[in-house]
Structure formats: C-alpha cells, structure tokens
Design a protein around this nucleic acid. Structure first.
Lengths: 209, 209
DNA sequence: CCAAATCTTGACCGTATGGTCAAGACTATG
DNA sequence: CATAGTCTTGACCATACGGTCAAGATTTGG
C-alpha cells in the first residue's frame, strides 16, 4: 500500500545518502569532536543504531563525508583544464569555487575543520590526490608565465590565494553574515563578491587592464 | 631553597598564563569539542583540578583564549591607522596579518574554528568590536577610492580577501606544509608568500604598476 | 508461501568527560 | 610562629558518548 514503494536495492543507497547529508551538516556545525552520532541520527530521522548499521563507526562516516567533498572539488577544478590562458582558466576556476562556497558551504567547513586540526583522517588525500593536482596546475601556470600571458607570480601562492579567498565565503559565512547586518547574502551580494574577487586577482596577476 | 621563588601575587598570573597557552594549543589542534580539560592540564603540566581552580569551566577558559586572540588582532589592525594612502596602509596591514599567521597560528585556528561553527561563544565580539572596526575601515577605503588613490573595489570584499588570504597561512598551515614536501616554510618561503600576496592584492586594487 | 537475506530498533555496556570536593600544603603577614 | 588566605591535588560523581546486540520486522527470490 506504499505510495512510493522503496526498492530494497535502492534502500541502502537512499539511507546512506540521507545519513551522509545529515552528517555533513552536523560535522560542519559542531566539528568532528563536537558532533554526536545521536544528533546525526536525529537530523536524519533514524534511530542511532540504524546509522551504525550503515556506517560502523563515526570515523568511517566522517571519512566518507570528507571524501565526497573532495570529489566535488576535483570536479570543479576541471574548469582549469582546456583553458586557453590565465584570464579564462583562472576566471572560470574562481567562478566555480565561489559557486561551491555558495551551494556547498557545509562541505567546505568540514574540509577546513579537518585540515585545521592536522588532517588526522584524510592526510593521505593531501599527500596524493591534492599534491598531484596542485603540481599539475603549477606547471600550467608556469607555462602561462613563460609565454608572457601573466605576471611572474609564484603559482603556488596564487593557488593558495584563490583557495582562501573563495572558500572564505563558505568557511566564514557566519562572520560575513553577521557583518552584513545579520542577513544572508543576496544574489546581488554574491555577484558583487564574485566580481570583486575576480577583479582583484585577475588584475593582480596582470591579465586585466 | 627555591632558586626562583615565586611570589604569591605572581603565582596566579603565571599559572593562568600557563594554562591559557596550553589551552590555545589544545583548542587549536582539537577544536572546542575535541579538546579535553585533562589534555590541557597535561600540556600545562598541572593536575586537572588545578586547572578548574583557575578557570571554573571549559567554556570560561575557551572564552578567555578567544578574547586574547581578538585583542592581538585589534592591535595589528592599527597598522591601518595613520596611513597616508592604500599602498602604505593596506601593505602594512597585510604584512602585520601575515606576521600574526606566522607567529600565532594556534590563535588564528581557534578563531577560525569558533566562527566556522557559528560563533556560539563569541557572537557578541562579532556584532560589536569587529563590526565597528570593519565599518570604520570601510569608510577609510571609500575615501581612498573617492580621492582616486585606488580602483573602485567593494571595500568589504577587499577586507575579506585580505583576511582570508593572510589567515590561510595559519589556518591551513598543515595543508601548505604537506604541499611543501612536508617541511615547514623557511624564512625565504615566508618572504615569497608575503610578496606574492601583497603584489597580487596591491596591483589588483590599482596601487601598483 | 516459504526461507534466506536484509533492515530496524530499544535496550544495554564500558569508557571518558566536565566538574566537584574536602583534606592538606604552602605562603604572606603581623 | 601563629593564623588567615591561597593554592594543590587525588578521589570521586553524574552524565553522555560511541558502539554492541539480539530480537523482530520487512523484503527478496524461488
């Protein structure tokens, strides 16, 4: 008599997704140490024991959350690819990262929290996937510099500045909102933010008049 | 027979300082939820009960730590004052903030963690001291823009970009170190970082050729 | 319709945590 | 050196946490 009968095969996937979404939210708000399995279960509207059925330990659940976030970021980083030059590539990358900060702030916070506390769980991600991606991008930027398409800026520190300035809008969203008279940023506010960040960085590296 | 007899009057101050330093370190590494009074006591090399003698609750201790950090930042922000123009004022401010990230990374992490989790403890700081300071600085920047000393950038978002890019070297120091072959930044590395950040931002707002 | 597999859940357990307390040690001062 | 004030500390407590478990409900496939 169920209106929307749930296939058993989908059940696992659906419940895992439900739990992961709740966990991301709770981990972002309370940090790993401050988050409780009970609260995650409450947010997911499931008994705690049921959460443990799908994710054996708190750490396993947390690791899955962080892993998902990292995948999203790697996908966004593709904007860097196939770019003809820095104005296009870096501009698109900033746009993509700003969009993630807007639509996925909880994930950004979880990542920031994890790294800030020494990346005890996902150190291997930093050393492999992130390190590889970074050195690849540094090569691309160095080629742009050699071709005279932008100023000779340290690519490494340029990347850090892009990461920090875009993720700031997610990680420090609460502070930004407080300084915005306690109200969320509007569409226009986000547009202004995006424009300001892009203008400063692009002009700062010499690809905008 | 004590070689360095401790005056009773100084005892309180010294022990409080000892505990505050230990607490800042532990809160930075583990977050508020992950930190334990026992670990703070161990780092301070005192019995846990003794820590509770000086700071009645974990939250009181935490609040004091965050308060101290905020004072340091406000002091650094004075570099903004008495500046004749944006090149000098913003340049000095970036220098000061980079120096804090280098010498006081734990404090920066505690602040970031607190804000990221919605500033449950120090919301009043955001609404009063920080909001006041920010609106004051926005006025100064707007005057610079009106006088044609820099490009017409949204002052608010310029401040966010300065905060994020400088604090990133403290908050994400572990990630930066991992991407630096696992070794700490050298004096030269810090010089390069400072130069890169300043060049991009100053040129980006039109105060550098 | 049956049996195997999967999912659900309340009750439970050991541990670790923030915080308390009272007895004692130390220090300043008259 | 006596006494009041301050500091130190091991032992202790209630609570909350991550995780377990076994009994039952539900679904799947033959």
């Amino acid at each position: 008599m169920n209106v929307t009968p749930i296939r058993k095969q989908n059940k696992r996937r659906e419940n895992e997704l439900l739990i992961l979404q709740a966990a991301e939210k709770v981990f972002a708000e309370a940090g790993f140490g401050g988050a409780t399995m009970q609260l995650i279960a409450d947010v997911a509207d499931l008994p705690k024991a049921n959460v443990h059925y799908y994710f054996s330990t708190k750490e396993a659940l947390y690791r899955q959350v962080v892993s998902n976030i990292f995948d999203i970021w790697l996908k966004a980083a593709e904007s860097f690819e196939n770019a003809s030059g820095p104005a296009e590539g870096i501009g698109a990358y900033i746009d993509a990262k700003m969009e993630i900060s807007r639509t996925h702030p909880a994930g950004s916070k979880v990542w920031a929290s994890e790294v800030m506390h020494g990346a005890p769980i996902i150190q291997d991600y930093l050393e492999t996937a992130l390190a590889d991606w970074t050195s690849g991008r540094i090569s691309v930027i160095n080629q742009w510099i050699e071709r005279g398409l932008m100023d000779p800026i340290s690519p490494r520190h340029l990347l850090y500045l892009i990461w920090s300035s875009t993720q700031h809008y997610a990680d420090f969203g609460h502070q930004i909102q407080t300084l915005n008279n306690g109200t969320s940023l509007t569409d226009d506010d986000w547009q202004v933010a995006k424009t300001a960040v892009k203008q400063i960085i692009l002009k700062g590296i010499g690809v905008m008049p």
